[in-house]
Design a protein around this nucleic acid. Structure first.
Lengths: 197, 197
DNA sequence: CGTAGGAGATGACGAATGTCATCTCGGTGG
DNA sequence: CCACCGAGATGACATTCGTCATCTCCTACG
């Protein structure tokens, strides 16, 4: 019997997936949590064989959670096929990555693969991640762009990052260039779509 | 028996919710679609009692679908509690509005209410919609801001809207002021969070 | 030791943005 | 008929952005 921990912020989804997985003879959902920052405690308590993580969660996002659980068998389940998500997940030791528009069979199959020590990456997501390559942004460019994405002005970004305003403009400028965008807003959109911020 | 049509783009979610609803004695899921633009045809074919619509769907979003089905009993199911969504839904004659982090019981209850001709609005969402009031933006301001949100420059927006660049700047400026934002990007974020664009 | 390279700062400059006051021109209501 | 109002246009102006070339440290590395 494969013991599964389910982490997803939407109760209906969590409950529904738990029900579906419960129909599989060899899978048992032993715990459910609705926040990223509750996963670690639940893992410690229930010692699941496989942890199924949503990326978008309050408290702590699924990728950060994954990074904090080395050695644990994990599978990421996400709505958004952002290439950057897959990269971060793989870097964190996650062996399964599946979109929410997969079928229940695929999910169950992926859980079994991951439990057996194998990998399961959604083929389409893997392909788009390959196509996209990895983020061309440096850490600083990413930080500056992420703050800009929240509506911060150059002055505010400079304050938050302890940089001069000119430097911030330089970073944003080079991020815009690297992303092939025409302005800050387009750069933000691209970076978000790719999962780079 | 309440005949339900389920429209949601994520197969796993759709399948899972269908399974959950199937456990209810008086509810039967008679059809499922994964795209907004397939809902009308499916409704014509299956004549469901209640249509459950996700807001975020490819092809056509759930709110637009709702507006195109006057008289049909509908229930909106969404991840995002954007106040503007609720308003649009109510204006389109939708009588049920429920977040994806509700429980299956609540969903089933809401479906029964809507089928019986009643209303079910998630209390929390209704409250935040009341707090937020309705969009302060004029149509033009909204259009301009929506295009800006996609990364368009003032020149491009002016072209798309058949306005002069100065007028576009005026609209954007007044949108920024009305939303209490410091710049275009912050205005975009606010408007998106509220479901106003 | 010497030096290449990266992070950050600076200054300059043109282009885009944000803000205002003002003007035009079709309605619309009295 | 006329005053009024709202959508849109215009022009002007101060900022803020986006871009570049250049300069300073600091660090890794041969």
């Amino acid at each position: 019997m494969i013991r599964v921990l389910l982490a997803d912020d939407e109760q209906l989804i969590r409950q529904a997936i738990a029900t579906l997985l419960g129909l599989e003879a060899d899978i048992a959902v032993v715990a459910q949590v609705g926040r990223g920052d509750q996963v670690a405690a639940a893992v410690a308590e229930h010692r699941p064989d496989v942890v199924v993580l949503d990326v978008e969660m309050p408290g702590m996002d699924g990728l950060t959670v994954a990074e904090s659980l080395p050695g644990q068998a994990m599978l990421i389940l996400t709505s958004f096929g952002r290439p950057g998500y897959l990269r971060r997940a793989l870097a964190a030791g996650v062996r399964g990555f599946i979109p929410k528009d997969a079928s229940a069979d695929e999910l169950a199959g992926a859980i079994r693969k991951v439990h057996a020590g194998g990998r399961y990456l959604d083929p389409e997501m893997a392909a788009s991640a390959m196509m996209a390559g990895e983020s061309p942004l440096t850490d600083r460019e990413r930080d500056a762009l992420a703050l800009a994405a929240r509506g911060a002005s150059v002055t505010e970004i400079a304050g938050a990052l302890h940089l001069s305003e000119g430097t911030v403009r330089n970073y944003l400028s080079s991020a815009i260039t690297k992303l092939g965008a025409g302005n800050r807003i387009a750069a933000i959109r691209t970076a978000q779509d790719m999962g780079w911020i």
